[in-house]
């Protein structure tokens, strides 16, 4: 899939390694997003309305090189966008991640950018979602804000 974004430099770590060294203008990372369990996510999974759960699941981990390439400021945030949606999360370095793979812990923030299709087997593809990542000054929404637009009508069956 071609990414054509006017006025932006696209950085795809698998396609053009040399671009990385030659350009300081990298602002958009084309990556593969995976979600998964973490200790922090698990330990707070029965306390999902807590600040601890927010802290444990509303981040995106990137490889050191991708993190640097995006020019993320200290404790900065990134906007992760897929064909299914977008979400702002805080950015973290993770030395275990290869170039071009980003990780968001299992939870509402990751699921904001996962697609509903199950490919006929009942299970959405939570790992391996094509994503674009860019640094952002936008704030990370808390869990209530994340679902605030899904208005409830109240009560009885429709």
């Amino acid at each position: 899939m071609a990414f054509l974004v006017p006025d932006r430099t696209i950085y795809s770590p698998w396609r053009a390694k040399e671009k990385l060294s030659s350009s300081l203008m990298v602002i958009l990372l084309k990556a593969i997003m995976i979600s998964g369990r973490t200790l922090g996510q698990g330990a707070n999974s029965e306390a999902k309305m807590s600040p601890e759960f927010f802290k444990a699941t509303s981040f995106c981990a990137l490889s050191e090189e991708d993190y640097r390439s995006l020019g993320i400021s200290k404790e900065g945030n990134v906007l992760v966008r897929t064909e299914f949606g977008e979400v702002v999360v805080s950015a973290k370095k993770d030395v275990g991640l290869p170039l071009g793979v980003i990780f968001i812990p299992m939870g509402p923030w990751a699921n904001a950018v996962v697609g509903p299709e199950t490919g006929g087997c009942g299970t959405p593809q939570f790992k391996g979602v094509e994503a674009e990542v860019e640094e952002t000054k936008m704030r990370v929404k808390d869990v209530r804000e994340l679902f605030a637009d899904l208005k409830r009508m109240g009560g009885e069956a429709s």
């Binding site: 029965e46 999902k48 299914f84 939870g107 509903p116 679902f147 899904l150 429709s158």
Partner: peptide, 26 residues
């Protein structure tokens, strides 16, 4: 609501939902 993709959760938002659980969550 936490564990389903967003568009799937939107399907929940359209229908009445009953929750049985010890804890508050999304």
């Amino acid at each position: 609501v936490s564990n389903f993709p967003r568009a799937t959760v939107e399907g929940m938002a359209e229908i009445p939902v009953i929750q049985i659980d010890p804890f508050p969550n999304p």
